[in-house]
């Protein structure tokens, strides 16, 4: 059965060198988990954004704990460019695997199906493909005419992390229509979820809403962390994104010193009183 644990115990399940799939800004970004990950200094991580990310991954990049970054984009949205992402690339301190959104979804789908790859249209002739030697172009074996098509290898994360509104006592997690959270969990060896709260009701009991639930079968541990996505918002309506906070981060994190100051405040933010 899924265990409900403290946040630090949950994060200790992420080992150095792990491949970690991270939920996007619009689907419960795991800010609290990332904060604890930075505190524990796990490091040497291969981060897979599903399929893009913002501050959650930018902060992690700033701490130097990312070895490889696989993503379709890193952006702070209206606040502008992601400063530590840009700095890490300029310094050459990370290995970047530039992708395109559907390719990341396809790689997770392959993992979900237990097959080595999934074919995908488009992409041919891009510099994205030119810089991804792990993506192959083959002739469509079912076509008589020439028909090149790209194969995307399975993405096999060790860990998937996201923040959700509610889990029940059995470890079933409400994900609404954010189906990418299920895709991540299906593909990953282990899924670690933070939630706003635990409900006594079994979320799978209602046949009408069970499809909006990730069953505990795929969930290894749950930690209760209220406001665990902040400064991003929760799609379920608990709170909205705080654009002023994201904009402030975008501004101060442009310099290494500014980032260090922000990080100190960020790490202090959830120390229990």
């Amino acid at each position: 059965m899924t265990r409900t644990v403290a946040l630090d115990d949950l994060v200790r399940r992420i080992k150095p060198g792990a491949k970690v799939a991270v939920a996007p800004d619009y689907a419960g970004p795991p800010m609290a988990t990332i904060r604890e990950l930075i505190r524990q200094g796990t490091g040497d991580l291969h981060v897979v954004c599903v399929p893009s990310a913002g501050m959650v991954v930018d902060v992690l990049l700033g701490t130097g704990q990312v070895r490889t970054l696989e993503t379709a984009a890193i952006t702070l949205g209206e606040a502008g460019g992601a400063p530590r992402f840009q700095a890490a690339l300029k310094q050459g301190s990370i290995r970047i695997m530039d992708a395109t959104c559907p390719a990341i979804h396809a790689g997770l789908l392959a993992a979900q199906k237990g097959v080595p790859f999934v074919p995908l249209r488009g992409i041919i002739g891009t510099d994205v493909l030119a810089n991804r030697p792990d993506w192959k172009v083959i002739q469509n074996p079912f076509a008589d005419a020439e028909d090149p098509i790209v194969l995307i290898p399975a993405i096999l994360p060790d860990i998937a992390i996201f923040h959700a509104p509610v889990a029940d006592r059995f470890g079933n997690v409400q994900i609404g229509r954010r189906r990418e959270l299920a895709s991540m969990a299906y593909a990953a060896k282990s899924t670690l979820v933070t939630v706003e709260r635990i409900t006594d009701e079994n979320l799978l009991h209602s046949e009408l809403s069970a499809a909006a639930v990730l069953p505990s079968l795929y969930v290894d541990a749950v930690a209760v962390v209220p406001e665990g996505a902040k400064p991003y918002g929760m799609w379920s309506g608990e709170y909205d994104v705080d654009p002023a906070e994201v904009a402030q981060y975008a501004r101060v994190a442009r310099t290494e010193d500014g980032f260090r100051d922000y990080l100190a405040r960020f790490l202090g933010a959830t120390v229990p009183a």
Binding site: A72, A82, G92, D98, L129
Partner: peptide
């Protein structure tokens, strides 16, 4: 993605390709 200098260490780096490498087709 970015411009100036050699990828991936370009002088300017933008967010990334998002879904463009696929949807444009």
């Amino acid at each position: 993605v970015g411009g100036g200098g050699d990828y991936p260490q370009t002088k300017v780096r933008w967010p990334g390709s998002f879904g463009s490498s696929y949807l444009a087709f």
